[in-house]
Structures are given as structure tokens and as C-alpha cells.
């Protein structure tokens, strides 16, 4: 793990109209680290994640990702997007393309990779997410879990330096959630730098090198997964006990 962080947010401020969603958010992720953002709905964690890929512009503060300074007016947005992969809750696969075409589109169009090479990469990443046999299928022929894994493969094919996951299992039932989480754990074990937003607390505890607990647009607690066992703030204590009660149902 190198010392200089690959992702760094410093005092990030962001409002939607009069609603302040990020109020001085700072954290840093080192190369190869897995950071998990947790907190209630509306705490700002998804917005923070989207800011890292410049899907949202910030009002103040500073974000640096893979050497790109996001506030820089000369920011090469497409270069940033090549270094950062993002997977969404709603998969967003291209419905008119097969799984393989979904995966090969960006490498061929953006990186000008020859078709044969792009297809070889597609086979490789599809095998990594357990979809080697679904290359020729169309998204609507897949289950939600398979679609989400295909979306992960599509991102991986661009060989990003960092991957962001925005509540990628929230639309899935427990069984399908488990198969997606297995893929994420393998990815983390392979050394990928990852930032995740999730409500799966058991998973967060297992996978996180860094847990970031957000509440009301602020980072209230931050540290290794152990902070869940010994919350220092009343908000995290309430959040943890609420999540435990939920899991116990």
C-alpha cells in the first residue's frame, strides 16, 4: 500500500438547491484499499460516491482521483472516466447489445482496442464474474444478479484503477445479493481499489479496510471495520443497533 492516497476528498461541500447534502466531507483511500460508506438513506453517501466520478459537481473543497484534480477547469473528464469504473444499483446495461457487446463496446470505442483483443478481454472478465456462458445473451434474458455481474464485467474490461459501487445489491433478493457480493470480495482480494456504498452490514464488516460512517452530510466516524463494535457517537450506535435489529428479523 503506497502512502499517497489514490482517492482523496477534502472538505467537500455540495448542495442540491437549499439542501446541503455534503457538509465538509473528507476521507482518503490508499491504493488497494476497500472503503465502505455507510449511513442512513439521505446521509449523503451516494452523492459522495458520485462526486468521485464527477457525476456531481462539488460546490467547494477538493477531490483528487488517480492524479486528476476534479476542480481543475482543464480536467479531462474522459481520462478520469477511464481510470474510474462505476457500477450502479440499476445495472444500466445497454439493452440492445448482448452481454459480450456491452463489455467490448467501451474498450473498442474509447481505447481503440481491436475487436479480437476486446473479445478476449470480455471472455476473461466474464469468467471472473461467473458469466462465461452468458456472453451471447441479451440483458433481459438474465436475472438481476447476473445483470449486475455483467455490469461489473463491463466496468472491469476498461481496466480501471479504481472501482465505485453504488448500492449494487439494493435491488436484489438475498440469494442474488450473495452471488454479487462474492464477486466483489474476489475483486477486493485481487487488489482492486474500491469504494462502496452498501446497506449490507455483515459484508461491509468483512470487506472494509476503511469504514466511513456518514450522517447528515458529514463524516461522523471513520476507521477500520472495528469501529462498528465500539461506536463513539450516538448516531453510529443508533445506526448499528438499528441495522442489527433489522438483520435479526
Amino acid at each position: 500500500m503506497s502512502d499517497t492516497p489514490i482517492i482523496e476528498l477534502r472538505d467537500v461541500q455540495k448542495s442540491f438547491g437549499t439542501l446541503k447534502v455534503l457538509d465538509g466531507v473528507s476521507f482518503a483511500v490508499a491504493r488497494g484499499q476497500v472503503a465502505v460508506l455507510i449511513g442512513r438513506s439521505g446521509s449523503g453517501k451516494s452523492t459522495a460516491l458520485r462526486c468521485i466520478d464527477r457525476l456531481e459537481r462539488i460546490d467547494a473543497g477538493e477531490i483528487t482521483v488517480c492524479g486528476h484534480r476534479l476542480a481543475d477547469p482543464k480536467l479531462e473528464l474522459r481520462a478520469l472516466r477511464q481510470d474510474v469504473g462505476i457500477v450502479f444499483q440499476s445495472y444500466n446495461l445497454f439493452p440492445h447489445l448482448t452481454v459480450e457487446q456491452n463489455v467490448t463496446l467501451a474498450p473498442m470505442a474509447v481505447k481503440r482496442v481491436p475487436r479480437a483483443e476486446a473479445r478476449a478481454t470480455a471472455r476473461d472478465v466474464l469468467a471472473r464474474v461467473g458469466l462465461a456462458d452468458k456472453a451471447a445473451a441479451y440483458p433481459e434474458q438474465l436475472s438481476g444478479g447476473q445483470q449486475q455481474r455483467a455490469a461489473i464485467a463491463r466496468s472491469l474490461a476498461m481496466q480501471p484503477k479504481v472501482m465505485l459501487f453504488d448500492e449494487v445489491t439494493s435491488a436484489l433478493d438475498p440469494e442474488l445479493t450473495a452471488e454479487v457480493l462474492r464477486v466483489l470480495e474476489q475483486l477486493a482480494a485481487s487488489g482492486m481499489t474500491m469504494v462502496l456504498v452498501t446497506h449490507e452490514m455483515g459484508f461491509a464488516r468483512r470487506i472494509a479496510d476503511l469504514l466511513v460512517f456518514m450522517h447528515g452530510g458529514k463524516v461522523r466516524e471513520m476507521g477500520p471495520a472495528g469501529i462498528l463494535s465500539d461506536p463513539q457517537t450516538i448516531e453510529l450506535r443508533q445506526f448499528v443497533s438499528h441495522e442489527l435489529a433489522h438483520a435479526g428479523q
Binding site: L55, R78, R81, F88, N92, L93, L105, V110, A151, M158
Partner: peptide, 16 residues
């Protein structure tokens, strides 16, 4: 909108 966003996030240009 998510389709377009996914395209942007993959680094595709507007024309692409």
C-alpha cells in the same frame, strides 16, 4: 437517463 450516464462513465464521447 441511467443509460446515458453509464455511457459517460465508460468514457464514451457525446458522439459515441
Amino acid at each position: 437517463a441511467g443509460q446515458i450516464e453509464a455511457g459517460e462513465c465508460l468514457g464514451l464521447s457525446h458522439v459515441q
